[in-house]
Amino acid sequence: MNKLTRSPMKRREFLSVAGGAAIAGAVPSPSRASGRHRFLHGEFDITVLSDGFLTLSADILLPDASPEVRSPILTSLGGDDSGARVQANVPLVRYGKDLILIDNGGGDNFQPSTGRLLQNLLSAGFDPAAITKVIFTHAHPDHSGATTTASGEILYPNATYYVSQTEWDFWTDRDFESRRPHALHAFAEGAKRDLLAVKDRIQLVGEGDEVVPGMAIVNTPGHTPGHISVELQGRDNLLITGDACTNDVIFFQNPNWHFGFDTDPELALKSRRQLLDRAATEKLKMLGYHWTYPGVGYAERKGEAYRFVGA
């Protein structure tokens, strides 16, 4: 484990959501399991691959909204009053000889509707052994769960793994269970499984660190204590947001609403507002992990809120 040199709930039990397939049958939106969207951004060649989808309950997606407000939003997401599906969009970034994944999906460690990334990588002609870097925006199981196979082998055997110092310290704390709420314990179990599996390949990063030239870390804490986003230089710099803004429909229109899996709800709101305000002001391109596939677009101001405009 190394430190990278810097360059100029409202909580619900994890297992109840990991078993979210219980409501999946009621939600008809497509899985995007075979999604593949490619575009160029400056020196970067980006392919957005699908890891499938996950199903979240209404209480997780919209904890602040009344039932009458929830219903039309969930319908617009292709769901019903019990919940809705959200996509899992994984960017694969080619830069020179590097192939960089930003998050690696759920593998076999989340809902059965996730874990499609490996299949889609292979279908697109990419060998897992060719992946040189994996950046974790955070260590929730739908973002880091595919670090190892079911038999415990590292799925991307030649990659270096990047995670923020704060994220590493939080989840690998030996006293986690005695110091943190019970609702986080299952999350910590998954995070430790994934992070410790590659501990000898970890690079610890923070604000402003460059993974490759023109690809820098942006701190966006709150969803988890060490959540990061990734900024790529180019025309209309590209911000890859992870879960700093979890859904393009709900949280663009309602930037002051909470999300049920935010570890620090108020800090998460602050990070989201800052992110959307900057993106709208500077006309930055954005890419969101759980946004409508392929999740690439812009934040446009609409009164006190925002509108997502697909690129």
Rank of each mutant, 00 (worst) to 15 (best):
D80P: 03
T148R: 04
S113Y: 12
F126L: 13
V205F: 03
A311Y: 12
V296P: 01
L117N: 05
P8D: 06
N2A: 07
H223E: 12
D81R: 13
L77A: 11
V27F: 10
V90T: 15
D169P: 05
N158F: 04
S71K: 08
Q233R: 11
G20A: 07
G295F: 06
S271V: 06
T160V: 04
L92W: 05
F14E: 06
K192G: 10
G226A: 02
P213D: 11
L284W: 00
M286L: 15
G295Q: 07
L275W: 00
M1R: 04
G190P: 06
D236G: 02
N89V: 10
Q253N: 14
T147K: 03
T263N: 01
D64F: 13
F110V: 02
S164C: 00
A183S: 15
L77K: 02
G125F: 08
V48F: 12
V17K: 02
H223V: 00
L184M: 00
V86E: 04
E282Q: 12
P8L: 10
A299N: 07
D45F: 13
L4Q: 10
D108H: 15
R85C: 09
Q87R: 08
S34G: 07
A280D: 06
N237E: 01
Y156P: 01
A268L: 04
A65L: 11
Q165E: 11
A150V: 05
T224P: 07
F261L: 03
